[in-house]
């Protein structure tokens, strides 16, 4: 039993089935991509129990009881994009779009788990995932603006 994007799902998999393949082939959540299957490229990154995690370096059975968030759960049910998704479009942070889901999941954990992020921090944090198209400028700008948005929100909540 796993919770995926808020929905409880039970399924079965042989022990060797990678979580990536389970999400993609069994649950048909193909937004999580397979780029290297050895934990370097970051295309398969999903959020498990609050932490960005490589789904190619976990077996599906290991996710039993976990709460998983994939790219498909980022926008609202009505299709309203998550603020970071909008910022990716605004800053031209994607071209082919293959790395994008992993980039988004990585960035969300990075921003939400950090207090204040300099551009350098963002570059180091986002170096967890590879993009071959954009040269990263748009990605870094989008994540920076998202981090600022969250900070502003926090500030106004405190105020």
């Amino acid at each position: 039993m796993v919770t995926v994007n808020g929905e409880q799902i039970s399924g079965s998999a042989e022990p060797r089935t990678l979580l990536t393949d389970f999400l993609r082939d069994e649950l048909r959540l193909t937004g999580t991509h397979v780029g290297c299957e050895h934990g370097v490229c970051g295309a398969c990154t999903v959020i498990i129990d609050g932490f960005a995690t490589r789904s190619c370096l976990m077996f599906a059975v290991q996710a039993d009881g976990s709460e998983i968030q994939t790219i498909e759960g980022l926008a609202s049910a009505e299709g309203e994009m998550h603020p970071l998704q909008k910022l990716f479009a605004k800053h031209r942070a994607l071209q082919c779009g293959f790395c994008t889901p992993g980039m988004l999941m990585t960035a969300i954990d990075l921003v939400q788990s950090s207090k204040k992020l300099s551009e350098e921090d963002i570059r180091i944090g986002m170096s967890a995932a590879l993009c071959r198209c954009t040269g990263y400028e748009g990605i870094v700008n989008a994540v920076s603006e998202y981090a600022e948005q969250l900070q502003d929100e926090e500030a106004s909540n405190v105020g």
Partner: peptide, 18 residues
Amino acid sequence: PRREDRNLLLGKGQFVAD
């Protein structure tokens, strides 16, 4: 703005492996 972006951002792109 790119008309390609929305599907790709939502994880609804379709690549061969999908």
